[in-house]
Amino acid sequence: MTRVLYQLYYFVRAAFAGLRGSPLTTGVSIATIAVATIPLGGLWVVTGNMRALLDRFGEELQLTAFLDSKVRSDQGRSLAAQASAIPGIDRVEFVSQEQALERFRTRLGGSALLDAIETNPLPASLSIALAEEARAPERVAAVSEALHQLPGVEDVAGGETWIEGYGRALRLVRSAGMGLGLVLSFATLLIVANTIRLAVYARRDELEILSLVGASRTHLRVPFLIEGVVQGAIGGAIGVALLFGIFHVAVPQLRDALELFLGWSDPSFLSPRNVGILVVGGAAFGLAGAAIAALRTRVA
């Protein structure tokens, strides 16, 4: 058991000796992963901010179901109860014709214009707050559809169409990101694996000698895997750091454009958790690249 620990110590030592011993291949691996991290992390910043914007609007998102003029107040209240049973609906408030008029009045500031009206033209309605999970554009449409099915509901308003468009844009950016991510991942893996293969070749004399004095395959390979993890983590961290720099230079310059086209007033960078995920992801790529290199290279 302790032997295993000491071997681990030797593996780690050999890995760091290897990293220092071949600075060029080490540098290429790190740079590759750093360069791949920037566009991926950048896309993540974009989608993250789009998502946040949608959420903010979602909080204010209300639907109004206008009721038939034949619906009486007590019926309206039972309709409200039925509506609140629809999945995705948080709260339902019944607004009678009188209340509607009252609200209209206070909003207009008691205009004499309204006093002239004899019959109340405003319909009774249900004022509906959506549950958190139903604020996505596709869910809003479903809730709205369910409301239409209720007896006495004439029309449903709200759930502005631009939100739907924005949601579509978010989905588009996301799938583009995934596609780009896939291509970038593949290219990164290829470059890293081949770079580490070069490092293996550069050290093949050493590996042969180690094998001749009784090193197992594990002993020959594990240091390369550790090197891959270290290179990947460093590459990921450098990539995130560069992205952070770009973010801080670019955002103030583009402030107006971002506000105008994306509606971002104060975009935020990746959360610490997501930064962690990118660094760990870099490490995983380094490990995968090293594993491919180690498996494809016959070592002594």
């Binding site: 032997r3 295993v4 000491y6 071997q7 011993g21 050493e206 090193a215």
Partner: peptide, 30 residues
């Protein structure tokens, strides 16, 4: 133990480290 005709020492390691590889591969404490 083998003494190779062409020695087969690891060029990038010191004398001490070259001798130690025999012990490292079996996990002898440093």
């Amino acid at each position: 133990g083998v003494v190779f005709q062409d020695f087969k020492l690891i060029a990038s390691r010191t004398v001490e480290e070259n001798v130690a590889v025999t012990l490292e591969v079996i996990g002898v404490p440093p």
